[in-house]
């Protein structure tokens, strides 16, 4: 009896997971085929799921391979490549910077005891949870005053608002897991503070750092609101730039779809290749 019930359960589980996966994957399928359709097919009244002529023209247009188009289309350069480059430039810098700022703080929170420690920890974490709109609105004018609007530096700095708390949240757990004894014996062996930190603690926490780095990379790349409000056209990252496939007379869905695919690839590929680290990062951040 038990075995039959077990088998029934398994069938149910597979159906449930199958349904869920179908829903998860369908949007990817849909946006992919939109990106390889011609414009007329995209606005066709009856949506075409399979029977349409596939074309790579949209991707070519995105990167300007081939002859430039004329009226009503993008002529000359599309800025898409620029957007992509902007994201590629900003994100690693933002992540690196957040590691520099966050790791020492996480280490201190994990290892040291001092008055107001939990209040400080709360301050950092609250920056992640609190609605960023409240600082973004004033920063719109503040950034202009300080010449940070529409600059790489400006975007890198504001991304720290979410990157650093995330780094601290995750790394604190990783550091706390490292046995203190290793550090203590190093001290006994004559290492000074810096040596302990750089030669022992940080290397041991490498998996944690990798996890944090991947998490913050994905979330920085995916960020939209900060860039929308504090960056103009020059340094626009690809997430915001994607929305600009709109001419005066129409919205170019097929181009937008191919842009979406390309823009989504980096975080997806990263996640796929390094999911072990991502999972560790996400879970250690949440589970102590």
């Amino acid at each position: 009896m038990e075995k039959k019930a077990r088998r029934l359960l398994l069938v149910g589980v597979y159906i449930f997971l199958g349904l869920y996966l179908a829903i998860v994957l369908f949007p990817f399928y849909w946006i992919f085929i939109t990106s390889i359709k011609t414009e007329k097919d995209v606005i066709a009244y009856i949506p075409k799921f399979f029977r349409f002529e596939a074309t790579l023209e949209n991707y070519a247009d995105l990167f300007q391979i081939g002859a430039p188009k004329t009226t009503g289309e993008f002529i000359g350069k599309t800025p898409f490549l620029d957007y992509l480059l902007n994201s590629l430039k900003v994100v690693p810098a933002a992540v690196g910077f957040s590691l520099l700022l966050g790791i020492p703080a996480a280490y201190a929170l994990a290892r040291y005891r001092f008055p107001g420690k939990e209040k400080l920890a709360f301050f950092y974490i609250s920056q992640y949870f609190l609605p960023p709109i409240i600082v973004l609105l004033p920063l719109y004018t503040i950034y202009q005053k300080f010449g940070l609007y529409d600059t790489y530096l400006g975007l890198i700095l504001i991304l720290q608002l979410v990157n650093v708390p995330l780094t601290i949240l995750v790394m604190r757990g990783f550091f706390a897991e490292l046995p203190v004894e290793i550090e203590e014996s190093a001290v006994i062996d004559g290492c000074n503070f810096w040596q302990v930190l750089t030669k022992i603690s940080i290397p041991l926490a490498a998996p944690g750092i990798t996890a944090t780095a991947f998490l913050t990379t994905v979330f920085s790349w995916n960020n939209f609101l900060f860039a929308l409000m504090l960056v103009g056209t020059e340094k626009m990252p690809v997430t915001v730039g994607m929305l600009s496939f709109q001419t005066y007379v129409k919205v170019q869905w097929n181009l937008m779809a191919s842009a979406a695919i390309i823009a989504a690839l980096p975080p997806l590929v990263l996640a796929f290749l390094f999911q072990k680290y991502l999972v560790r990062g996400l879970t250690l951040g949440a589970i102590k």
Binding site: F74, I75, G76, G232, T233, L243, S244, Q246, T247, Y248
Partner: peptide, 10 residues
């Protein structure tokens, strides 16, 4: 030359 959205922002 900028796209519509970008143009007005800028």
């Amino acid at each position: 030359l900028l796209s519509d959205n970008e143009y007005w922002n800028k």
